[in-house]
Simulated scan of single mutants.
Amino acid sequence: MIIPRPENIGHDILYYDGSNPHELAELKGRVRFLNKLWLPCALELLSPEQIFVTNRFRESVISTDTQFLHASFMRSCFIQILNELEKPEVIEIGCGKFPLATNSSFGSYLGLEIDSEAVDFCTKKGFDVILCSAGKIKDVALEIKYDFCVGLYSFHFDVSEEVIDFVHRHLKDSGCVMFNVIVDDSEQLAKKF
Rank of each mutant, 00 (worst) to 15 (best):
G111W: 03
G111N: 03
G111H: 00
L112P: 02
L112I: 02
L112M: 05
L112H: 00
L112E: 00
I114E: 09
D115M: 09
S116D: 14
S116A: 11
S116K: 10
S116H: 07
E117L: 15
E117N: 13
E117Q: 13
E117A: 13
A118S: 08
V119N: 08
V119R: 06
V119K: 02
D120H: 03
D120K: 09
D120R: 12
F121K: 09
C122K: 05
T123K: 14
T123L: 12
T123P: 05
T123M: 06
K124M: 07
K124T: 06
K125R: 13
K125C: 12
G126Q: 14
G126L: 14
G126A: 13
F127L: 06
F127W: 03
F127R: 03
D128I: 01
I130W: 01
L131E: 01
L131S: 02
L131F: 09
L131Q: 02
L131V: 04
S133Y: 06
S133A: 10
A134W: 01
A134R: 12
G135V: 09
G135S: 08
G135K: 08
G135H: 11
G135T: 14
K136P: 00
K136C: 15
K136L: 08
I137T: 10
K138R: 11
D139W: 06
D139C: 04
V140I: 09
V140K: 01
V140S: 02
V140C: 04
A141C: 09
A141K: 11
L142A: 08
L142R: 03
L142V: 08
L142Y: 11
I144G: 14
I144P: 12
I144F: 14
I144D: 13
K145H: 07
K145C: 10
Y146H: 09
D147C: 10
D147S: 02
F148R: 09
V150F: 04
G151Q: 05
G151Y: 05
G151F: 06
L152D: 00
L152P: 00
L152C: 00
L152T: 02
Y153E: 10
S154I: 01
S154L: 01
F155G: 03
H156R: 03
H156D: 11
F157E: 01
D158H: 10
D158N: 14
D158Q: 09
V159N: 06
S160A: 10
S160G: 12
E162D: 15
E162N: 12
V163W: 08
V163H: 11
V163L: 13
D165Q: 10
F166Q: 06
F166M: 03
V167P: 12
V167W: 14
V167G: 12
R169E: 15
R169K: 15
H170V: 05
H170S: 00
H170K: 03
H170G: 07
H170E: 06
L171F: 05
L171D: 10
K172Y: 00
K172N: 08
K172L: 05
D173W: 00
D173G: 07
